[in-house]
Write a protein that binds this DNA or RNA. Structure first.
Lengths: 203, 203
DNA sequence: GTCTATAAAAAGATAGAC
DNA sequence: GTCTATCTTTTTATAGAC
């Protein structure tokens, strides 16, 4: 199992769980179930069965079911903030940076960690009030990354609408791809999809 | 209670429930609860309380809780197909038609029927397999309306990306506005938001 | 058409043995 | 760290009176 160097360093810093560990495997399976069935429809018995243990044993790892949801969200946003940062750093021009961000977010949503990204976007309501604050704080960092690139682009007159509105439109549009984009069949590659998104914005 | 003439004629044809009727009021309240708490977190007791009856009495109107979800979706898509058709018919040019569709969908999502539109988009997973077919059939008509306008625009060389991809991006982007767009505070009107969306596409 | 009462099942969580 | 067994609560749905 070869691992992304970014993921590797986050694991070393204990900011995300090793996918090979018991906790990591549970969170991976939880993300998949939460995306497919929704958090509420997923029972603790489903979660336990997915990693091959009994439901009672789950509570040795997490105090409540909601704590699992929160962990999925926190670790996902930490990982993806690092991924976006790395993507943006690779490019020089503002346009190149935006394209790299779009590509990276599409990859996250439709790739291995896609389940977890979808959970982050669509299961917000199921997070308890207390947990929201922590996730929100992390999300602000993530969004700040996007905004700084969009504002740079806007400053050069290359953006046709307001940066914060463009970002919100992109959030909706890119996350929605999880419901329809199937890279396996049909000729549209991730790069092709990225191009379409950029083209749509006249970039 | 003055009513939209389009809504009025749909009620007359018994394609959607009168919001004043018992059934109509229940569906309105159900849509609101389903959007705010999610379908699964909303109990039949919540639904009953929202219209001032006991939970047992609900089952005189609907056989199951899921039937309520399905009814919300079916009636919402019927109403909105009619609304989009009327909007598109008002404009002459392809660009004008697209703008009218964007405006109308934003209005639906963020206006009085917005709760129900959000349910349609975000509660799809909670619909039983059997019910999906019926809703899907109606959705195809709705989407066909958008596609014909986008293809017309594309034929004139005014669209920078493929019609079906643009539509899917718009679906995600416009429905996502329900999570952040607050017309009351902040200066952005619905027309302003519509302009931003069109501008983003270079239109 | 709504009420009360309750059946029947499902779900989150706990306790103690191994 | 996982198992079995079970408690407690919640939830959908039903039955029959009014």
């Amino acid at each position: 199992m070869s691992q992304n160097p970014i993921l590797k360093s986050l694991i070393a810093e204990q900011l995300v769980s090793d996918p090979g560990s018991a906790r990591g495997r549970l969170l991976t399976e939880a993300a998949r179930l939460f995306r497919d069935k929704g958090y509420e429809r997923t029972t603790v018995r489903d979660l336990a069965a997915a990693v091959g243990i009994q439901s009672g044993s789950l509570f040795h790892h997490f105090r409540t079911k909601e704590e699992i949801l929160k962990a999925v969200m926190v670790e996902t946003i930490r990982l993806n903030t690092a991924l976006m940062q790395a993507a943006a750093d690779q490019a020089e021009s503002p346009r190149g940076k935006l394209k790299a961000l779009v590509r990276a977010e599409l990859e996250s949503i439709n790739g291995q960690t896609g389940e977890a990204m979808a959970v982050l976007v669509y299961e917000w309501r199921s997070l308890s009030e207390g947990s929201r604050a922590e996730v929100l704080e992390l999300r602000d960092i993530y969004e700040g990354l996007w905004l700084s690139v969009l504002e740079e682009l806007s400053g050069k007159g290359q953006l046709k609408a307001e940066p914060f509105i463009v970002r919100r439109m992109l959030t909706g549009a890119l996350s929605w791809t999880v419901t329809w984009y199937k890279p396996e069949r049909g000729g549209l590659t991730l790069d092709g999809l990225t191009e379409q998104v950029m083209a749509m914005m006249g970039l």
